[in-house]
Nucleic acid binder design. Sequence first.
RNA 1: UGGGGUGUCGCCAAGUUGGUAAGGCACAAGGUUUUGAUCCUUGCAUUCGCAGGUUCGAGUCCUGCCACCCCAGCCA
Length: 564
Amino acid sequence: MPTTDEKYPGNFIRNIIAQDVAAGKNSGKVITRFPPEPNGYLHIGHAKAICLSFGVAEDFGGVTNLRFDDTNPLKESTEYTLAIKRDIAWLGFRWQEERYASDYFEELYHLAERLVEAGKAYVDSLGTEQIRAYRGTLTSPGTDSPYRQRPIAENLDLFHRMRAGEFAEGEHVLRLKIDMAAPNVNLRDPVIYRIRHVKHHRTDDAWCVYPMYDYTHCLCDSFEGITHSLCDLGFEDHRPLYDWVLDELAMNCHPRQIEFSRLSLQYTVMSKRKIRQLVEEGWVDGWDDPRLPTISGLRRRGYTPASIRDFCRRIGVTKSDNRVELALLQSCLREDLEDKAPRVMGVLEPLKLVIENYPEGAGEVLHLANHPKQEALGRRQVTFTREVYIEKSDFRETANRKYKRLVTGGEVRLRHAYVVKANQVIKDETGRIIEVHCTYDPDTLGKTPGDRKVRGVVHWVAATHGIPSEIRCYEPLFLIDFPDAEHGDRHQALLPHLNEESLKVYHGFVEPSLLDAGPEDRFQFERQGYFCLDSRDSSPEALVFNRIVGLRDSWAKIEKSGAD
RNA sequence: UGGGGUGUCGCCAAGUUGGUAAGGCACAAGGUUUUGAUCCUUGCAUUCGCAGGUUCGAGUCCUGCCACCCCAGCCA
């Protein structure tokens, strides 16, 4: 039974399936499938589809098949199947069967022969251009191909010879014989087989005719006993074709196709073509660039599978166009990590603080809680010394009262340690601040001074103990809200909107406990955000961190409003 | 001039057979706080694309408009 959770919207597909189950359709079974084409990496839009198809099957005690839609050998490769499987598994889903459309090529071919024999399909020998011309337009009907009335025996012979490799690419195609005047252009005798003298990543050179999507997909669904075939709105006008093929072939299993709207997420692009362009033209670091909305990019960035699943549930499933704000995704990550991520301290832009009245060479080992509320996360040791780094932005020579951090002559709490007072600013000849000299109040470790109020708390890292680290912070790849919606030149439309500052690299310091960090570990750098080790570039000798997302920052809002 | 869809708060989204607008995100204002984080409290659609109609009563029914999205690959 589907779980009802107040926090998440139900959705119409789940309702339809619940009704089907209640009505005893398919003996009450639910079998779905996720059918990626192995021609690129999965992105968060696919995650939405994955969560839906796998999730709904699971809710009704059913299963989901993973089926690669590999009918176009020109674009597909094994590299992509591997990446896709890895991403789905990482998201936390397990498929029942791993199938390929190419597994069914023989069966598909025989069924096509039956269609020819039944006079429902014919070999057309028109060229690409002519087929297009004969198709008519959106508002005017098409014209029958001169080959449409070819005798069945001739069609069969030609189709056999197509398979036998007797023809060049483009010489003939097999088309369904439906209705060239159909208002739905998909029904104007769609091509279902074309000749391609290329090797397929699985069937190698066994075939030189390859079936097309509209013919293949519905039959594969049927072969596998799929009960509900969920896909995006783009296939809505293909449903009549989906049903036509299954009906004409009198298939026992006739899955129900249900369409829902694709996800579009703020500040990013959600099409394989565009993501591929960014990758291939080198605008990003690869399919797993942390700025990309690909699953592997999000993974490398540090997003958790749970946060992505949560996001997919929160956005719901409808047929309406949607434009989801990035803030929602970020909120899901913060919510997931708030209770789980150990707190540590790291400084992105170091400013040295010299505590003049603290003994030179001395060091105090502090045993700090890894989490303010989760005792189970344990403790760690951090050493406090005479010289520490704080964040450049946490010091100002002068500031108004709204600024709660360190100001010349003022006091601030060094997180988990002492209260210090800034006495003197040391600058270089260009006027740049080199270091700040302070004095500390020895009586403030673990206690608040009784005679005055210290309003600010800043994080720090001991200068002699800090581990130099590269810290990468990311901003959206695009400057505009929804680049996908931009029109114009198909190729160049995106580029003017690229954010050239989407990656900012800092060379800072982190506390030594981070030396033990593993690739899947995520931390909260206090007052900064959530971070993880970069799985590609980090090494024990040279740590590299990715900022997954910053903490909610109300100070930034105040500052931005110019109120400081 | 065709066909298929969608229109409920800034964003996402509930809204079974008409009965008097859930929730999340964002935002705002307070409180707690050795993270300007978290947490807690409060506020945030007299209105459901628009206009008519039916009805005691309509986001939910009818009619007519309007806006936006998708479709003319031998891609999926």
